[in-house]
C-alpha cells in the first residue's frame, strides 16, 4: 500500500534562485471549500471508495516516535452555537523534540493530520504526540502548540489558529505570540484543557468565546 505520508527533506531554498527584481504575481484568491470538501479531501470517509487506498491525514503516528501520546478533541462552532458538520480541520505540529517532519523530525511521526469531523456530532479527533518547543524567528522558544487550519462552507479564507496547552503555564507565560496579544482576556480561547484523557479544543467562529485567529 502506498504510504499516506512520506515526509522527505523539504528544503524551501532548493527552488531555483529568484530574480529579486523580477515579475511579481498575486496569490490566487481563496474561495470557500464549500459543502463538498470531503469529496476531494476525505472521499473514503464519505463512502467514495476505490479511488485512494485511504484518506490522507488519518494517522499522525505511523511508527513509534518518542513523546507523550495525547488525544485532541474538539468542534468548530458557528455563531448560532451549532457544531459544523461540513468542516475540514487540519493540524501541523512539531514532534516531542520540537522538530518537524522533513526537517529532522522523529521517524514514524507525520506531524500532519486531517479530520472531516464525526458524521453526526462534527467532533474532530487527533491521536498525536505532545509537541516540543519550537524556536520563534528570533530564536526564543515558543510554548508547545499545534497549528490548526479550518475550512468549510461559509468560510471564505481558511482560518489559521494555534492550540496551546493549559498545563504549560510557564512556557505559555513567555511565549512570544501569546504575550503579544493585546486582548489578554481572549488568550484562554487558545488553551486546550485536559478533560477525561483528551485535550479539548473547541473553536468558536463567533460569539463570546470567539477563538483568536491569526493573520500569519
Amino acid at each position: 500500500m502506498a504510504a499516506p505520508l512520506t515526509p522527505s527533506m523539504g528544503n524551501p531554498l532548493s527552488n531555483p534562485p529568484s530574480n529579486p527584481l523580477g515579475e511579481r504575481f498575486k496569490e490566487s484568491p481563496s474561495q470557500t471549500a464549500g459543502p463538498y470538501v470531503h469529496i476531494g479531501c476525505t472521499p473514503n470517509f464519505l463512502g467514495i471508495e476505490g479511488v485512494y487506498p485511504e484518506d490522507l491525514g488519518t494517522r499522525m503516528i505511523t511508527g513509534n516516535p518518542d513523546g507523550e501520546r495525547i488525544t485532541i478533541k474538539g468542534r468548530v462552532i458557528d455563531g448560532a452555537g451549532n457544531a459544523l458538520k461540513d468542516a475540514l480541520i487540519e493540524v501541523w505540529q512539531a514532534d516531542a523534540a520540537g522538530k518537524f517532519a522533513g526537517r529532522g523530525g522523529a521517524e514514524g511521526f507525520a506531524g500532519w493530520g486531517r479530520s472531516p469531523g464525526d458524521m453526526t456530532t462534527g467532533e474532530f479527533t487527533f491521536e498525536t504526540v505532545k509537541p516540543g518547543r519550537v524556536p520563534a524567528p528570533d530564536g526564543r522558544p515558543q510554548a508547545p502548540h499545534v497549528t490548526f487550519w479550518i475550512v468549510a462552507r461559509g468560510i471564505n479564507l481558511g482560518l489559521h489558529t494555534r492550540m496551546y496547552f493549559a498545563d504549560e503555564e510557564a512556557a505559555n507565560a513567555e511565549d512570544p505570540i501569546l504575550t503579544r496579544i493585546e486582548h489578554q482576556s481572549r488568550v484562554p480561547t487558545l488553551l486546550a484543557k485536559k478533560e477525561g484523557g483528551a485535550y479539548r479544543f473547541d473553536i468558536h467562529l463567533q460569539g463570546e468565546n470567539e477563538t483568536i485567529f491569526f493573520d500569519i
Binding site: L5, P7, G10, P12, D78, G79, A80, L84, W92, Q93, A94, F100, A101, G102, R103, A110, G111, W112, V134, P135, A136, P137, Q142, H145, T147, A152, R153, G154, I155, N156, L159, H160, R162, I177, R180, I181, R186, L205, Q206, E210, T211, I212, F213, F214, D215, I216
Partner: peptide, 21 residues
C-alpha cells in the same frame, strides 16, 4: 454565522508555518 467578528491577529511566520507536510 461562520465569519469571525474580531480581526485576525498579525504575526510573523515561524517554523510552525514555514514548514509543512
Amino acid at each position: 454565522a461562520r465569519s469571525p467578528r474580531f480581526a485576525p491577529i498579525g504575526a510573523a511566520t515561524s517554523l510552525s508555518e514555514e514548514t509543512g507536510p
